[in-house]
Nucleic acid binder design. Structure first.
Lengths: 234, 234, 234, 234
DNA sequence: GATGAATGAGGATTCATTCAT
DNA sequence: CATGAATGAATCCTCATTCAT
């Protein structure tokens, strides 16, 4: 049975479809499922669709994942990878001001998480947490807590350097988190919530957010002195 | 047969079957629907369940709301957008500083929406928007847009009074919205996302948030502006 | 209780709605039901609608007719009245040719049955016969059989007068019936089967039908002699 | 476990569950649907019933026909409009007289439609057209219009050959249609409308009908035209 | 008698899951 | 291993009928 198969593959230059990527199957299914779960939610994603997008039959999907729930869990686990060690190292070595560091951190997050499919996982978790408490706990431990720790480190460094006023750390972390989560939610509810006039440009939003976070919205005399603020009066 | 019924009614407070309470029904159904929608999501909430929780039969539900979607819309109106006129009036009459006004607005929102089950609606919409575009559009039009308008009014008043520096209004609105949505998401992923140490006390968070929003996190000496804070060496 | 009622009626000149036509109720319900049954069929006619069109509540409908089926039966029975004795007398006295008699009979039928709501009963019976065999039998006996007898009488007279060639009477009766039933069905499926170009003008159709019935479609030399034929070439 | 199954299959002819017979299904479902639609009408036929009669589960029905309406359309195509191309071809090639052609056409229709369950479709449409306008439109376009076109072709050929006198085509078509519809209605109100003495023998009725259609009922002497027959004394 | 609020059985359709091939 | 035909539980909504007022 293997001979004709090989013959097939070499003769045509293309492996027969069914054989082409036998080992890649789970990965392709996970990728297809991620996209669809993010797009439509867990309940609304049909097994049929996932299978089709992965280029296999519905039966095959259940060969690899015993149920839709198991598929969902696998998708989430598969996508919560640790990008944190790399960031931690970068932050350890960072030498600029806290303002720059926050800007850098947020842009970094946006570039490597927020703007990518990975942000879909956050959206997915938010949406389906109550149906998958076990996964939510997992996410909390693997993603949220380490993320908070990184933010805390940046803030603590700012306080130590005298750039940030002493503040309740827990609250400060949430204050930093809020706009990030907001961006994720905006991004993934896009299209359905289309209000052109209020559309968010993430990079600009993050920059403005950092400025505001550091200096506030209040008008002060000194404001006249700083022409580089991005305010576009009304 | 009449005796047990009487007994039943008086002793347990259970209504007899086929009781006619036309005026009370909508409210009871809306309350039941709110609970269930928030608990289980729109799609996963079965009409029978809503009816049962409201103490009526399935048919009765459809007597008052022509479809599940209409029921949802009614829930939204009953719990969120129905409050806007009142807020708008209050804001019109408000006489304090912008800082006070923001605090007041946020607390108001927290008390009457954020802290109640109604906040679940926002979470729900985030989760299911893509599956029910018509509901998403309704929410956008009935909740988001008027909500943004209210925020814009507060900010514009602050600018007019010289308390807020001129700023791009669209972004500013999002900056105000972010922590509110964040609270909602935290609240409704609660229990699953339980990190005791990082737990948020909403009222405090909102207060801190307003302070930060207005004055920033940066350390200043007696409100002197440190010029080099504004340099962007990057 | 009757005193205030009377007072009411006389004082206002209009009887209170509920009182106005207590005895007319069944008739009004039957009339409304006839219209709706003919329009939409038995199954698709909602009790609610019948009641509303009759100006009463749904409950009242069931006060007079114990079920929708009973209402239907009552409608049919109510509308199958004997117009036959009158026709039989007219035919007895008729003195013209058979051709004239057929024309007269068909026009008579069209005017007093086909063009009126009464034809709806025929349509109704046709449509629902299989669901109401008892009614169908009733209709057969009360309407179809006497109708056939009338037609048979006309034809027999024609044969006796030497105007009609001897023919199997049973078949001839059906040959006369067919266009009548056809008209009824066309009339009542009108609007749904709208093909403007093929629209039937009943009076013309009946006239042409009688001509054809008597003289046929075949081309004969004699045709050149008869300029009053209604043929509109192509 | 395999033994009883085999036994079952061979002994009773009952298929094992989950038998895969993709090619046979549509036909079995269409046959079951035709029977049930004719027996009970479109609205009253439940999808489960069709499936059960075809020996499959409800789900399978919807695997082959996306909705009950589509199932109905397929039944119509399978039983009526699907035959038109064949008829059209036959008529194109027909070489006999118009009388023979009409006889042939009517017998053809009777044999393959009128005498079969398919004729129930026409009765059904008459009954339910107003409730399912889309189906009525479909029937009009797919069955009635092409059917009329076929008849028109026969008549036009007769005129062109000088066998039929020129006549308004629209009316002529209806004159041909009437007895066909009449047969259908008689057939399907059968049993309920049983009047033994007046029972119709369709083949004879159609033959007589064609004769009458062509030559009329009038008595003629050696085919001489009696001039006073055409006077209209009224 | 009259009302109309309440009931709940009934039916089309979807889709995760199974299993014969 | 892979397939995809088959299954049937699940759910929204309708509407004839009931019955408390």
């Amino acid at each position: 049975m293997s001979f004709p198969k090989l013959f097939c593959e070499t003769a045509r230059g293309l492996p027969a479809k069914r054989e082409r990527r036998k080992e890649a199957r789970p990965g392709e299914l996970l990728a297809a499922a991620l996209e669809l779960f993010v797009e439509k939610g867990f309940a609304a994603t049909r097994a049929d669709e996932v299978a089709k997008r992965a280029g296999v039959s519905k039966g095959t999907l259940f060969l690899y994942f015993s149920s839709k729930e198991e598929l969902f869990k696998a998708v989430v686990r598969d996508n919560i990878s640790g990008r944190y060690p790399g960031w931690a190292a970068e932050f350890e070595a960072f030498e600029g001001s806290t303002a720059d560091m926050l800007r850098y951190a947020m842009n970094s997050w946006w570039t490597s998480v927020g703007a990518t499919k990975a942000s879909g996982i956050s959206k997915l978790i938010m949406s389906e947490a109550s149906n998958f408490p076990e996964l939510a706990a997992f996410y909390q431990k693997e993603v949220i807590e380490p993320g908070h720790a990184l933010i805390r480190r940046i803030l603590q460094r700012g306080i130590d350097r005298g750039e940030i006023r002493p503040i309740d750390m827990t609250q400060a972390v949430h204050i930093i988190m809020a706009p990030l989560l907001y961006l994720v939610m905006c991004k993934h509810c896009y299209g359905t919530f289309a209000d052109e006039s209020a559309r968010l440009v993430p990079e600009e939003f993050l920059a403005t957010q950092v400025d505001t976070l550091l200096d506030g919205l209040s008008l002060r005399q000194a404001d006249n002195v700083t022409p580089d603020r991005k305010a576009k009066p009304q």
